[in-house]
């Protein structure tokens, strides 16, 4: 079985379902919760959030290095005097370096989001009712011996159980 799940109307009902599924012996990581809006209190992703900030900072540093190299190295390679200014005008280059830093951070953040949120890969378990407002609580690939207990737990939380083969 690919997945076993039920749909709930609101967050309280979904919360009860999660507790019951937990009590049936499923670890927190294996519980699948799908919703069409962010629901707080489920994902303990603090360390992963920090990782996103680190990726953004890393991207910014790459951008900074690129901007510095682009301006300083090319100005030295083809020195053209303008307005009695030095050949490498670091004041002015700061502007290009700044923009490239921010661009690096922005692009790194978006790229990292695609990876961290596993976007772009084929969907496995999904129900269109989620986008109409229902909250899906279920388990992907449940162990065969757990199926009965899970079905009881979800029904106890008050919803019709569905399966995905």
């Amino acid at each position: 079985m690919t997945a076993l799940y039920a749909l709930f109307d609101n967050a309280q009902a979904a919360r009860r379902a999660i507790e019951l599924v937990r009590a049936a012996g499923v670890p927190h990581r294996e519980i699948l919760v799908l919703s069409n809006r962010p629901l707080e209190g489920f994902d303990e992703g603090r360390s992963r959030a920090t990782r996103q900030w680190l990726v953004a900072t890393g991207g910014g540093l790459v951008g900074l290095a690129f901007g510095t190299a682009l301006t300083t190295l090319t100005q030295t390679a083809w020195p053209l005097s303008t307005g009695n200014m030095p050949i490498v005008t670091w004041w002015a280059n700061l502007i290009i370096m700044f923009e490239m830093t921010m661009l690096g951070a922005i692009l790194a953040t978006c790229g990292a989001l695609l990876v961290f949120a596993r976007l772009g890969r084929s969907r496995k378990v999904y129900d269109p009712a989620v986008s109409a407002g229902q909250i899906l609580v279920g388990v992907e690939r449940p162990r065969p011996e757990q199926v009965g207990e899970l079905q009881r737990a979800l029904r106890a939380a008050g919803a019709a159980v569905r399966t995905l083969e």
């Binding site: 919760v33 962010p38 992703g45 978006c110 989001l113």
Partner: peptide
Amino acid sequence: LGWRGTAEQWARLETAMQI
């Protein structure tokens, strides 16, 4: 992009928007 709405996806998206 295959968005499902898992709790993890929402958390990652919100952090990305903060950044």
